[in-house]
Amino acid sequence: MTLNAILITGRTINQGATIENKTSSDYQEATAYCELNPKDIGILGISPGSRVLVKTDHGDVVVKLKENKGNPDGMAFIPMGPWANAVVDPDTKGCGMPGFKGIPARIEPTDKKVLLMKELIARYK
């Protein structure tokens, strides 16, 4: 099952607390996930902790699924960082700022693994 969602990215306390330690598993734990509300998780038919493939017109990335009851229906949140930035909209809209929020995304269950930071960046080389 694929869920169409609007993706936003942003800060979290654990993302910030590990920001100077980006080679650590703590950083990956803090940033390589996607939050949906319980209803949207129900549509995907999997449980939190499973892996999802997040696809946008700009790329795709595998992250862990998390529940956040505060998200409205059809809204996905990934903490800012290299996993989120694999799928954000680079267009700076004439003012220098890429599109880190409001990106149409397609989310589906996957068996693929979550890449380590090193592996993720290696895709760009």
Partner: peptide, 11 residues
Amino acid sequence: DAGAHFPADSV
């Protein structure tokens, strides 16, 4: 850290 905080195409 541009590598972490820029979109994929920039990196």
